[in-house]
């Protein structure tokens, strides 16, 4: 009789505990499905807080990361996953969390951090081979940092890791973006009026700069010749000098804009190609 009683009690306890665990995750999942991401985040956190089962905690952690990703809170996912990595998960689950962390770091625009996390992966999980997606993320992060030569090496590695049909594709790094030389632009803008803007690809601004600087110079010279020495200096030279210095600063801005635009265009094109490859 006692045995029967104990068995019933044990059954009730186990059913109750596992039922609660499942119900916690089901609640969180249903909130996630209905688009209530903050409530779902709390429900997943509750599952992590209440549970001592690593499996449930892991599922909840991934669920919370999905919520954060849906809300575009990629940067918040990185420290959250860091806190989860302190827990005692089996290696295979830790690898999955690290994988998610790398993805989130890249999506959050933390490119240096992405590379650092990727570099740590082979030491922490020496038996696991890098997946094509992780290789792709490394290439994309290197691209964003304009480290295209390193990215090219990893691109080749990615091609070799993919099936043969993919290797026939063109290497985008054969045509790297032609970035303008900031020093050269500055030098041109300093010594030839309008040349800096022209080099940066802005002929209209270059013409305006030439016009204003010439006007200043002309006014200065004519004033000097007419004996208005102070006007020649105060207005002519002042106007010329101000627009000349402004031209140098403006050229610097334009060069940065042009280079960013070209780099972004190249990176976008490579990103599309790489995503097609790994899809």
């Amino acid at each position: 009789m006692i045995t029967r009683f104990c068995l019933i009690c044990t059954f009730l306890c186990v059913t109750c505990l596992t039922g609660r665990a499942q119900s916690r995750l089901q609640t969180a999942d249903s909130l996630y499905t209905s688009g209530q991401f903050l409530a779902a985040r709390v429900a997943y956190e509750r599952a992590i807080f209440m549970s001592s089962d690593p499996g449930e905690q892991f599922t909840a952690a991934l669920g919370k990361v999905q919520c954060l990703k849906q809300q575009g809170l990629y940067a918040a996912s990185v420290p959250f996953l860091n806190s989860q990595l302190q827990l005692l998960y089996p290696d295979s689950l830790l690898y999955r969390l690290r994988y998610e962390q790398i993805l989130c770091a890249y999506l959050a625009g933390q490119f240096e951090n992405t590379l650092s996390l990727l570099d740590r992966l082979p030491y922490l999980h020496p038996t696991v081979r890098a997946t094509p997606l992780l290789l792709a993320i490394r290439i994309l992060a290197l691209n964003e940092l304009q480290r295209w030569q390193e990215a090219q090496l990893h691109f080749r590695e990615l091609l070799s890791a993919l099936p043969d049909s993919a290797t026939t594709r063109q290497d985008p790094y054969q045509h790297l973006p032609q970035l303008k030389n900031a020093k050269k632009a500055q030098w041109l803008a300093t010594f030839i009026p309008g040349a800096g803007q022209l080099y940066a690809g802005k002929p209209g601004e270059a013409a305006l700069s030439i016009l204003v600087q010439s006007a200043g110079l002309y006014f200065g010279l004519t004033s000097f010749l007419q004996g208005y020495y102070l006007s020649a200096w105060g207005i002519g030279a002042g106007l010329f000098g101000s627009f000349q210095a402004g031209g140098v600063r403006r050229t610097d801005v334009l060069i940065r804009e042009v280079n960013t635009r070209r780099a972004n265009a190249f990176n976008t094109q490579v990103r599309q190609q790489i995503l097609t490859l790994v899809r």
Partner: peptide
């Protein structure tokens, strides 16, 4: 306690929600 745990983790939105 759950809210306190979230506050310790600096998850302010979640803790406030709770």
């Amino acid at each position: 306690q759950f809210a306190h745990y979230l506050a310790d983790k600096e998850e302010v939105d979640e803790a406030s929600f709770v």
